[in-house]
Computed example of a mutant assay.
Amino acid sequence: MNALKEKFTPKTVKKAVGAIRDISKTLRFRIRTYRPNTEYCEDNSRFIIKIIENGTELMDVLRLRYQVFYGEYAYKTDLYGIDVDKFDTFFDHLAIIDKKTNKPIGTYRLNSTRFNKKFYSEKEFHMDEIKDLSGHKIELGRACVHPDYRNGATIAALWKGLGAYMSITDSRYMFGCSSIHSDDTFQTALIHHWLKGSGYLPKEYDCITPRGKFKDKKFEKMVEKTADERFAPFREAAVNLVPPLLLSYMKAGGFVCGTPAYDKAFKCYDYLTLIDRKKMDPSFVRKFLK
């Protein structure tokens, strides 16, 4: 760990951030001077699991996100190899770092109500019912894993970090946008039916709806169409279409709220997902939230 920390000097941070010209001077300054709201770090034989500590580590996370979101899914961008927005310098970032390369291979952006009162999810959803829940909450966002590390060990490390952050912030709820990286309305409608039929779409949260430009009438019509009996086999098989990360939330005891939002910029559907710590699967609590 000492060797890892030694390379993070004000000079190296300034050099790394200075190369990014397509973002404002203010944002470059905030990245360069970034500090987290809290601290956490532990490791195992393969990974370091931590809350990133400075601008250099933040740049590594932003580059990983760019590689996954823009490179893998071929989204267009004018940024020089980073995925960044105005929220990044105010929130915490969980990183899973490969000890062999000292580079992040998995990450989450974490926003705790202990430190912030504004949420990225509010851009897409009317979500007063979530905001009004008692107790501290954590908004999860920008989850991604390097394609070479998409396995159980990495997912377990991410859950380990999430569990630690919940404990540190004494939070009861986790929520955030879970993406289906496709603009295929037929496929997403089948997933929607499977979620509803499996009990992962409770009626009490139907009031949480996408905001104006994130509403998709085509999706709503497709849900009605695929409710027909002839689509029953496809609805039952839709579990195979559910993204692994979203499926892990459901297995942990979470659920989705209402209709998904359609993000035109990223060409994906986002479900607002909610997990109540008091209703989590006991095995997850024992393993990750000790």
Score class of each variant (00 low, 15 high):
4 L>W: 11
4 L>V: 01
6 E>R: 15
6 E>N: 13
8 F>G: 01
9 T>Y: 08
10 P>F: 12
13 V>G: 03
17 V>Y: 07
20 I>H: 10
20 I>C: 07
21 R>M: 03
22 D>M: 12
26 T>H: 10
28 R>C: 14
30 R>F: 00
30 R>M: 08
31 I>V: 15
35 R>L: 13
35 R>C: 07
36 P>G: 07
41 C>S: 15
46 R>V: 05
46 R>L: 09
48 I>H: 13
53 E>P: 03
54 N>Y: 01
54 N>D: 14
62 L>Y: 09
64 L>I: 02
65 R>E: 08
67 Q>K: 15
67 Q>C: 11
69 F>G: 09
69 F>D: 12
70 Y>V: 13
72 E>C: 06
74 A>R: 13
74 A>I: 06
74 A>W: 03
79 L>A: 02
82 I>L: 08
84 V>F: 05
84 V>C: 07
85 D>P: 07
85 D>E: 08
86 K>L: 06
87 F>N: 10
89 T>K: 04
90 F>N: 12
90 F>T: 11
95 A>D: 03
98 D>P: 08
99 K>N: 06
100 K>I: 00
102 N>P: 00
102 N>C: 09
103 K>V: 00
106 G>T: 01
111 N>R: 13
111 N>I: 11
119 F>W: 15
120 Y>R: 04
126 H>C: 13
126 H>Q: 12
129 E>G: 00
130 I>V: 15
130 I>L: 09
134 S>P: 12
139 E>G: 02
140 L>Y: 04
142 R>C: 03
143 A>M: 14
147 P>V: 10
148 D>F: 08
156 A>H: 14
158 L>K: 05
159 W>M: 10
161 G>L: 12
161 G>F: 13
164 A>C: 10
166 M>T: 11
166 M>W: 04
172 R>E: 15
184 D>K: 02
184 D>Q: 02
187 Q>G: 02
189 A>W: 07
190 L>H: 00
194 W>L: 11
198 S>E: 10
198 S>W: 00
198 S>H: 11
203 K>V: 01
204 E>S: 11
206 D>A: 13
209 T>A: 07
210 P>W: 08
214 F>I: 03
214 F>C: 06
216 D>Y: 01
216 D>Q: 05
216 D>R: 07
220 E>R: 07
221 K>P: 00
221 K>D: 10
222 M>S: 05
226 T>M: 12
226 T>V: 01
229 E>C: 06
230 R>H: 10
233 P>C: 05
234 F>Y: 14
235 R>S: 02
239 V>K: 15
242 V>M: 04
246 L>N: 03
250 M>W: 08
252 A>V: 12
255 F>I: 01
259 T>Q: 12
260 P>G: 08
261 A>Y: 02
262 Y>D: 09
263 D>G: 06
263 D>N: 09
267 K>Y: 11
268 C>G: 09
268 C>M: 14
269 Y>S: 03
271 Y>G: 13
271 Y>C: 10
273 T>Q: 04
275 I>M: 14
285 V>P: 02
285 V>R: 14
287 K>M: 15
288 F>K: 08
289 L>F: 15
